[in-house]
């Protein structure tokens, strides 16, 4: 085992994601604790041209190949796993994203290392420890890894991305880019169609969650939004039910928004939702559960029934 920290570089359409820079920021801190260095592995299309942007790493391993498409859940995972096997880092970091989930789980299983998911914070002192968010953000857990090495899947926002953009030696090493036999083949990528409303450009968003209960009740929220001159946004379950179009979804798999005012109605505040709205200037949450995690990021909150609240506010705005 080395004392190094190995980071999986997530990239799409020729850009390294912020999630990767957040990992590099965490990796710099951890390398300081272990006395090792930060290694970043960038695999796939355009890998060589991305290395220059990874100055937060001390070494950048580049496996440039077009054979994996934008991302290949099996190919990227197996190629990264073989690096973990050969380099033996003390700590391996992946982002807790759609891409990182495929990679992290596979690497941990293939190398028989513990995997710690939903991480907010990792420490590499005598033992590897982490603080994680469980039960959709309702509980924080401290964990200790029994062995010397582990893979950590980091939640978005765990460290500032800017902390991972520089500070390393940035030495580039080209490595074997032979792609293994694959049972999973990349077919193509699809960008979302533009919606009727661009929720990322709105000053005020009225965001509804599962607390709205039924499609019929959406009208009431729309009325409030109209009275405010705001657009309606939503958490994932509302979109998955088909009650609002995908372009209205805020969060991990939806859009990141930063309106002047974000009014969250009946949204619990799962980490996947929070990562899309926590940077809003003023967050006001209404939720009948006083312990809902949304109150942890909201600036103002009212613990009560959204069906009592909506008509009161709509009245005041229309009156």
């Amino acid at each position: 085992m080395s004392n190094d920290v190995l980071v999986f570089v997530e990239h799409l359409n020729g850009e390294v994601t912020d999630a990767t820079y957040e990992l590099l920021a965490t990796a710099r801190k951890l390398a300081g604790q272990t006395g090792g260095s930060v290694t970043a592995a960038v695999i796939g299309t355009g890998a060589a041209s991305l290395a220059g942007g990874l100055g937060g790493a001390d070494q950048i391993l580049v496996a440039d190949t077009d054979a994996l498409g934008a991302f290949n859940p099996q190919g990227h995972a197996e190629m990264f796993a073989s690096l973990v096997t050969s380099r033996q880092p003390r700590v391996t970091l992946v982002p807790y994203t759609s891409v990182g989930m495929d990679v992290g789980n596979h690497v941990a299983a293939a190398t028989s290392q513990p995997l710690v998911s939903y991480c907010l914070k990792v420490d590499a002192g005598d033992a590897l420890t982490a603080t994680c968010q469980l039960y959709s953000g309702k509980v924080e857990a401290d964990v200790r890894v029994d062995g010397d090495t582990a893979v950590f899947a980091m939640l978005a926002g765990a460290a500032p991305a800017d902390g991972g953009r520089s500070g390393g030696a940035g030495a580039v090493e080209t490595i074997d880019a032979t792609v293994p036999d694959l049972a999973v083949s990349f077919v193509g990528i699809a960008e979302p169609e533009a919606g009727d409303v661009d929720i990322t450009a709105e000053d005020i968003l009225v965001a509804i969650g599962r607390g709205i209960e039924s499609e019929d009740n959406i009208e009431e929220a729309q009325e409030l939004a109209d009275a405010l001159g705001a657009a309606l946004a939503a958490s994932r379950p509302i979109i998955d039910q088909g009650w609002l179009p995908k372009t209205r979804q805020v969060g991990k798999s939806g859009l990141a928004v930063k309106p002047k005012v974000y009014l969250a109605l009946g949204i619990s505040g799962a980490p996947e939702h929070l990562e899309g709205m926590r940077d809003s200037s003023v967050i006001i949450a209404v939720n009948s559960d006083p312990q809902a995690p949304i109150f942890g990021v909201a600036h103002y909150g009212w613990a009560g029934d959204l069906f009592d609240f909506i008509p009161e506010l709509t009245d005041r705005l229309e009156g």
Binding site: L12, S185, F186, G254
Partner: peptide, 11 residues
């Protein structure tokens, strides 16, 4: 993936 971006795979 995220932001409404999806990819297709044959498995």
């Amino acid at each position: 993936y995220w932001a409404g971006i999806t990819a297709d795979y044959d498995v």
